[in-house]
C-alpha cells in the first residue's frame, strides 16, 4: 500500500458512492447510510445487495481476529469474488466493487464492471486487487470525486500515522452464505449458512464493533441497495392497478341496489381510500428521493469545484469594501482561541 498509484482520497458519503456507482456504468443501485442495524430498517431497504462497514483503522487493532471465522481461499475463487486491497486510497471504491461483483446475477453491472469481472475472475485475490486498481475507467471515475484542490498538492501519498486511516469491510450474501470481505485479509471470511442474511449480519457486525469499543474508534455503515425510486414507482403501479380493479368493482356494485351491495361498496370505498393514502405516501417518498438526488448533485458539484477563483473574488470584494483588516483581526483572535500550543522556540 505504499504506492497509491494516483488514486485520490474520496469522501465516504452516500451521495459520492451512489454517483460513483452510476458513473461506473451500474444502473439501479444506490448507497444509503445506515444509522441502525435494526432488521426492520434493513428490510425496508430491500433489495439489500451488501453492507459496507467502515471504521477508523488502527494498526494492530482487530488484526488477530481472523481465526474466529474460516478464511477459505479455495472456495473463495469459486464462489466469492474476493480481491485483496492494494492501494489504501482506493479502498472505498474497492469495498463497493466487492459487493457489486458478487451480485452479478442481481445487478446490471454494465460493460466496465462485466469486463473487469470476466478478466479477473480466474485470478488469485492479490492479482484481482491489482487488476482492479489498474482499471483506468474505474480509477478515472474514482478520481473525479477528488476535491479540486487535491490535484494541486502532492497529497497522493500513503496515509501516515498522523492521518485518519479508514478501513472498509464488505458483507455480502453469496449462495446462501454470509461472507465478510476485508481486503487486508488473505481471503473471505465465511460467517456460515444463512436463510436470511439481513437477520444475521447485525450480530456479526455488532461483534466486530465491540472489538473496538475501547479505542474510541469511529464506525459507519453503508448499505448498497436497489434503486429506491424504481422500487417505489413499481409499488405505485401495483397500487394503481389495485385501485382501478376496486374502482371497476365499485362501479358494478353501484349498479346493484341490494343492501349487501351497498355495504360492500362502502367497504370497497374504504379500501380505495386506504390505497390512495398509501399511494400518496409512496409519491411523497419518491419526492424525497428526488430531493435527495438533487442534493447529491449539488454537493458533488461543490466537492469537485475549484473554489480558488470564488475565494479570490470574495476576498477582493472584502478588500474593496474595506472589511479585510477587521476580518483578519477576527480570524487571528479565532486562531488564538483554538487549543493552545506552547511557545518553545528557544530552550
Amino acid at each position: 500500500m505504499s504506492d497509491n498509484g494516483n488514486w485520490c482520497l474520496i469522501e465516504s458519503d452516500p451521495g459520492v458512492f451512489t454517483e460513483l456507482i452510476n458513473n461506473m456504468g451500474v444502473s439501479e443501485v444506490q448507497v444509503e447510510e445506515l444509522y441502525s442495524l435494526d432488521v426492520d430498517t434493513l428490510r425496508g431497504m430491500e433489495p439489500v445487495h451488501g453492507l459496507i462497514f467502515l471504521f477508523k483503522w488502527q494498526p494492530g487493532a482487530g488484526s488477530s481476529d481472523v481465526q474466529e471465522a474460516n478464511t477459505n481461499n479455495d472456495r473463495s475463487n469459486e464462489e466469492v469474488y474476493f480481491a485483496q486491497q492494494i492501494i489504501q486510497n482506493a479502498c472505498a471504491t474497492q469495498a463497493i466493487l466487492s459487493v457489486l461483483l458478487n451480485r452479478a446475477e442481481d445487478i446490471e453491472l454494465g460493460e466496465t464492471l462485466c469486463n473487469l469481472r470476466s478478466f479477473s475472475v480466474d485470478l488469485p485475490p492479490d492479482m484481482r486487487g491489482l487488476a482492479l486498481t489498474n482499471c483506468d475507467q474505474i480509477r478515472d471515475v474514482h478520481n473525479s470525486f477528488a476535491r479540486a484542490e487535491s490535484f494541486l498538492s502532492d497529497e497522493k501519498r500513503a496515509a501516515t500515522a498522523e492521518d485518519d486511516v479508514f478501513h472498509f469491510i464488505s458483507y455480502v450474501p453469496v449462495n446462501g452464505r454470509l461472507y465478510e470481505l476485508d481486503g487486508l485479509k488473505e481471503g473471505p471470511i465465511d460467517h456460515g449458512a444463512t436463510d436470511n442474511w439481513l437477520e444475521d449480519v447485525g450480530s456479526v457486525i455488532q461483534k466486530r464493533m465491540s472489538q473496538y469499543s475501547q479505542s474510541e474508534i469511529r464506525f459507519n455503515l453503508m448499505a448498497v441497495i436497489g434503486d429506491r425510486r424504481k422500487i417505489l414507482n413499481e409499488k405505485i403501479s401495483t397500487v394503481d392497478a389495485d385501485i382501478s380493479k376496486l374502482m371497476e368493482r365499485l362501479e358494478a356494485l353501484r349498479l346493484d341496489d341490494r343492501t349487501e351491495s351497498r355495504e360492500e361498496a362502502g367497504r370497497v370505498e374504504t379500501q380505495i381510500g386506504a390505497l390512495n393514502s398509501e399511494r400518496a405516501g409512496l409519491e411523497h417518498m419518491v419526492g424525497m428521493e428526488n430531493e435527495k438526488f438533487r442534493k447529491y448533485r449539488t454537493e458533488n458539484a461543490l466537492r469537485k469545484h475549484n473554489f480558488i477563483p470564488f475565494v479570490y473574488q470574495l476576498l477582493r470584494g472584502m478588500s474593496e469594501k474595506g472589511t479585510m483588516q477587521a476580518a483578519i483581526e477576527k480570524a487571528k483572535d479565532a486562531a488564538k482561541r483554538r487549543p493552545s500550543h506552547q511557545e518553545s522556540r528557544w530552550q
Binding site: 482520497l9 469522501e11 465516504s12 458519503d13 447510510e33 444509522y35 467502515l54 489504501q88 486510497n89 487535491s150 497529497e155 501519498r157 496515509a159 501516515t160 498522523e162 492521518d163 485518519d164 486511516v165 479508514f166 464493533m209 469511529r218 464506525f219 459507519n220 455503515l221
Partner: peptide, 11 residues
C-alpha cells in the same frame, strides 16, 4: 453509532 465525516489522510 455515531456518524462522522470521513476524510482519510488529508493531513
Amino acid at each position: 453509532f455515531s456518524q462522522q465525516p470521513q476524510r482519510g489522510g488529508s493531513g
